[in-house]
Nucleic acid binder design. Structure first.
Length: 442
RNA sequence: CGGGGUGUAGCGCAGCCUGGUAGCGCAUCUGGUUUGGGACCAGAGGGUCGCAGGUUCAAAUCCUGCCACCCCGACCA
C-alpha cells in the first residue's frame, strides 16, 4: 500500500475539540472523523485497528465455546415493554418510529432480543448451557458524549449472553467469560483488573468491571499491586479451576472511587502494595439470574417442570478499546505511538528518501515491500516526497511498530531498521523479516 | 438538563468593539532549490464568514430567532 493513495488525512494542527490524547491522536492520524456529537466515521487506519481488536475479542469468545450470531441494531419496543425496561431505560434509549408509526428503538443492549430468540428456539434443559455473542453497533444517547470514541453515543460492542438451568451452572458460565476477558486484554497487551462492580440498569447481583490502567483514565482506582501477579495461564475451563481463579482475584482489594473505603483499603493492603491510579472500563460482566427470563417467559422443561433459565451478559467495548489502548500506550510528549503488532494497521512502514530526480529508493522500497508481502508481512510505503525526517515523525505518530528507512545510508543489502521510537540499525531483509516474524509469534 | 463558551478555506486562528464586501499559518497544486529528527523560495487554487430574518446605501461585523459543536456538573460500555 502506498501512503499517497491512502485515505489517511494526517494533520499537523490538533483539532481544538480534542481534549484527551487518544482523541487528539485519532483525529491527527485520520483514524476517525466526527459525523455529529458522539457519532464517528471510521477511516481506513482506525477501522483496520478496530477490526484487528475485534478479531482478538472474537477468538477468545470462540475459545470458550460461545456461538457467534448477529442481531439487528433496530429493535421493536414490544419486547422492551415485556421486560419493563421500555420505561426504565429512560432518555438514554434512542426511540424512533417507522412509517407505520410503530415504536422502534436503536438497541443500547440486547438482553430482550436474545431472550426472545432463546425462548422461541430452546425448549429443553438438554440444550443448556447456551452461550451466544454478537459484535454489533449500539446506541446510547449519552447526555454529554465526549473524548472521541471513548464516550460516544454510537459504539461497537461485543455482547455475549449465557443461559443456564441452575445458579451454579450460570456462575460457571460467568467464570468462563471472566477467564476469556483476562486472556483477551492480555492479548491486547493491556493490564486489566477485574473489579467487583455495581450492576446499573442491567440488574442482578454479581458483576465485575474490567479496568485497564491508564493515567488519563476516567475512573480513579484503588488496588493491590499483587493482583497483577495472579497467574491464570494454568487455569483450564472446568468448574473448580475457574472457581479458584475467581476466588483468587476476589481476595484482592480492587475498587473504583464510588466503592472506595479508606479503612478497608488500609486493612487489606499494606502500604507497599497500595496502588492508586486511574483506569478505563473496557469490559463488564453481569450475572442477573431470572430477571429477564421470568419477565419474558424464557424457560426450559426439566423433569416435567418449567424452569426459568438463569442468565448473564458480558460486554466488551471494542471501539472504546481503540482509544483505551492509545491512552495506555501513546507517549504524547515525544509523539510516539506503539501499537502492539497484532493490532497495528500495518506491521511495518517503509520510508524511502525520494526526490523528483531520483526515484531509485522508491524502487528499492517496492522490492522490500514485495519481499515482506511474500512472507505475510504487511507494509505501507510512504511514497510522498516529504523529507525523511518528516516521514519518520509522521510514522512515529501513526504508531506502526517497525520502520525501514531507505536513504543515503542504505546499501543494496542493508537497510536502516528501527522499532518505532528507537534507534536505527543496519539490517538485511532477512534479518528484518526474522525480527518482525518473531514479534508476530508472541 | 443547569452553568459557561465557540461557529470565518481540510486543520489552527486573526478580523467583529469602531459596518465599506475577507486575511494569516499549516495542508493542497505548479515550478525551482533542498534532503537524516516535521526544509526553503516563487506562484496558484480553495470560503454564499453556521442558518434564517431584520436594521442600513452597504453586514463576517449591529439586532432578533434558530441550529450545531465544545467545556464544567449530574449519568454511563
Amino acid at each position: 500500500m502506498f501512503l499517497s493513495k491512502s485515505l489517511v488525512p494526517i494533520l499537523k494542527n490538533i483539532p481544538s475539540e480534542a481534549k484527551i490524547k487518544s482523541h487528539k491522536l485519532m483525529l491527527r492520524t485520520g483514524m476517525i472523523k466526527q459525523s455529529s456529537a458522539g457519532i464517528y466515521s471510521w477511516l481506513p487506519l482506525g477501522f483496520k485497528i478496530m477490526k484487528k481488536i475485534e478479531s482478538i475479542v472474537r477468538l477468545e469468545q470462540d475459545n470458550i465455546g460461545v456461538q457467534e450470531i448477529l442481531m439487528p441494531t433496530i429493535q421493536s419496543s414490544e419486547i422492551w415493554k415485556e421486560s419493563g425496561r421500555y420505561n426504565d431505560y429512560g432518555e438514554e434509549m434512542l426511540r424512533i418510529k417507522d412509517r407505520q408509526n410503530r415504536e422502534m428503538l436503536y438497541g443500547p443492549t440486547n438482553e430482550e432480543l436474545i431472550t426472545e430468540i432463546f425462548r422461541n428456539s430452546i425448549k429443553s434443559y438438554k440444550s443448556l448451557p447456551q452461550l451466544l455473542y454478537h459484535i454489533q453497533w449500539k446506541f446510547r444517547d449519552e447526555l454529554r458524549p465526549r473524548f472521541g470514541v471513548m464516550r460516544c453515543r454510537e459504539f461497537y460492542m461485543k455482547d455475549a449472553y449465557s443461559f443456564d438451568l441452575s445458579i451454579d451452572e450460570a456462575i460457571y458460565s460467568y467464570n468462563k467469560f471472566f477467564l476469556a476477558y483476562l486472556k483477551t486484554f492480555k492479548k491486547l497487551d493491556l493490564s486489566a483488573i477485574p473489579m467487583a462492580a455495581d450492576t446499573g440498569p442491567i440488574g442482578g447481583n454479581l458483576s465485575h468491571e474490567f479496568i485497564i490502567i491508564a493515567e488519563t483514565g476516567e475512573s480513579k482506582i484503588y488496588t493491590d499491586k499483587r493482583i497483577f501477579g495472579v497467574n491464570y495461564s494454568d487455569t483450564v475451563v472446568d468448574e473448580s479451576s475457574l472457581s479458584n481463579l475467581r476466588t483468587t482475584y476476589d481476595e484482592f482489594y480492587a475498587v473504583t472511587d464510588e466503592k472506595f473505603d479508606q479503612n478497608e483499603f488500609n486493612e487489606k493492603v499494606s502500604d507497599d502494595n497500595k496502588l492508586i491510579t486511574k483506569g478505563i472500563e473496557v469490559g463488564h460482566i453481569f450475572y442477573f439470574g431470572d430477571k429477564y427470563s421470568k419477565a419474558m417467559n424464557a424457560s426450559v422443561d426439566k423433569d416435567g417442570k418449567k424452569e426459568f433459565v438463569k442468565m448473564g451478559s458480558y460486554g466488551i467495548g471494542v471501539s472504546r478499546l481503540v482509544a483505551a489502548i492509545i491512552e495506555a500506550k501513546y507517549d504524547d510528549k515525544n509523539e510516539i505511538m506503539k501499537w502492539p503488532i497484532n493490532i497495528a494497521p500495518y506491521h511495518c512502514a517503509i520510508l524511502p528518501q525520494v526526490s523528483k530526480n531520483d526515484k531509485s529508493n522508491l524502487e528499492k522500497s517496492l522490492n522490500i515491500y514485495n519481499y515482506l508481502k511474500s512472507k505475510n508481512i504487511d507494509a505501507i510505503i510512504d511514497d510522498t516526497d516529504e523529507g525523511i525526517i518528516a516521514k519518520i515523525k509522521k510514522f512515529n505518530l501513526i504508531g506502526i511498530p517497525y520502520q525501514i528507512v531507505i536513504g543515503k545510508n542504505s546499501t543494496d543489502e542493508k537497510f536502516e531498521f528501527a522499532k518505532v521510537g528507537e534507534d536505527l540499525q543496519f539490517l538485511s531483509t532477512d534479518e528484518i523479516e526474522n525480527i518482525i516474524k518473531k514479534d508476530l509469534k508472541n
